Computed example of a mutant assay.
Amino acid sequence: MRIQKTVIALALAGAAFGAQAHKPWVLPSSTFVENDREAWVTVDAAISEGLFDIDHVPLKLDGLTIIGPDGATLEPQNVANGKLRNSFDVKMAKNGTYKIALVNQNVFASYKVNGEMKRWRGLEANMAKEVPADAQELKVTRTSSRIETFVTANEPSDGVLKPTGSGLELVPVTNPTELRAGEKATWRFLLDGKPAANLPFSLIPGGVRYRGTLNEVRFNTDAKGEITFKIPAAGMYVATASWPAPQAQGSQGGQQQQPPARRVTYSGTVEVLPE
């Protein structure tokens, strides 16, 4: 029973963005840089109790990919591993919009060997050799997560906004570095390249420690996986979504909820500029 609960907790961890949950995030120093010479941004990566607060542990940079407006993959500069956060710089040598993403896929398994419960976490490629072939009561959950942000040097572009076709992705119709308070924005969510219809997602602004309330705003996509909405105030936000959507307590008729066979999560940091 304890092992099963642990697997459920691990599988749902990426979707837990409530007021009391530790939240993984990446935060650029700016999302729109105007500079005639060299454009740079510094990106912090951490897991924290308060959104964008540096108060817990650093977020590992495994799976980090930086894609430039021309489709080229860039290397992070000046990587620093800290006690409470990791950070790196991005040199934006070309004008346009860049995507900075941490994409990871893992497998969680629980099973019995000679009557003793075991659990395992790792990569799909290692599962066959690390989990015994004769394991009993094997339960497997596959997870994929995307944590990302977008930054622009001088002029926005849309090359990096094209989907990869894997996992849960935000495909902004409105460039995410051109968001302004009070103006309409249109977003599209895709799951493995197909419209994520009726997908619930949340927008949470930073600064919770100064407000004392989360101020989470919730939305749902339409049948095409799209939504057009207004953001009421300027600031840094994180957009979060997960599939399948977490079920409310009691929705199983008193039965214990089983871990899903697959859990996909998304978290994207965007900046909303003043009107």
Rank of each mutant, 00 (worst) to 15 (best):
L123E: 00
A125W: 00
N126C: 00
M127E: 06
M127N: 15
K129F: 05
K129D: 02
E130W: 01
E130F: 01
V131Q: 02
V131I: 04
P132T: 15
P132G: 08
P132W: 02
A135K: 04
Q136N: 04
E137D: 14
L138G: 06
L138E: 05
V140D: 02
V140N: 01
V140H: 03
R142G: 00
T143G: 02
S144K: 15
S145P: 03
I147E: 01
I147M: 02
T149P: 02
F150N: 04
V151P: 00
T152C: 05
A153Q: 01
A153K: 05
N154R: 10
N154W: 13
E155I: 07
P156H: 12
S157T: 06
S157V: 05
D158H: 14
G159E: 10
G159K: 08
L161W: 00
K162W: 03
K162D: 12
P163D: 07
P163Q: 07
P163Y: 08
T164F: 02
T164Y: 03
T164N: 06
S166T: 07
S166E: 10
G167M: 02
G167A: 14
G167C: 11
L168Q: 05
E169C: 14
L170V: 04
V173C: 09
V173Q: 08
T174I: 12
N175G: 01
P176E: 08
P176K: 08
P176I: 03
T177M: 01
E178M: 14
E178N: 10
L179Q: 11
L179F: 09
L179G: 04
R180K: 14
R180S: 15
A181K: 10
A181C: 15
A181L: 13
E183Y: 14
E183M: 09
K184W: 08
T186M: 14
W187G: 11
R188C: 12
F189G: 15
L190W: 06
G193R: 13
G193S: 09
G193E: 15
P195E: 13
A196I: 10
A196D: 10
A197L: 14
N198S: 06
L199G: 07
L199A: 10
L199I: 03
S202L: 11
S202R: 09
S202M: 15
I204P: 08
I204S: 05
I204E: 13
I204Y: 11
I204G: 15
I204V: 08
P205Q: 05
G206R: 12
V208Q: 12
V208I: 14
R209L: 11
R211L: 11
R211D: 05
T213R: 11
T213N: 08
T213H: 05
L214E: 06
N215F: 09
E216W: 07
F219Y: 11
N220S: 07
T221A: 13
D222G: 03
A223Q: 00
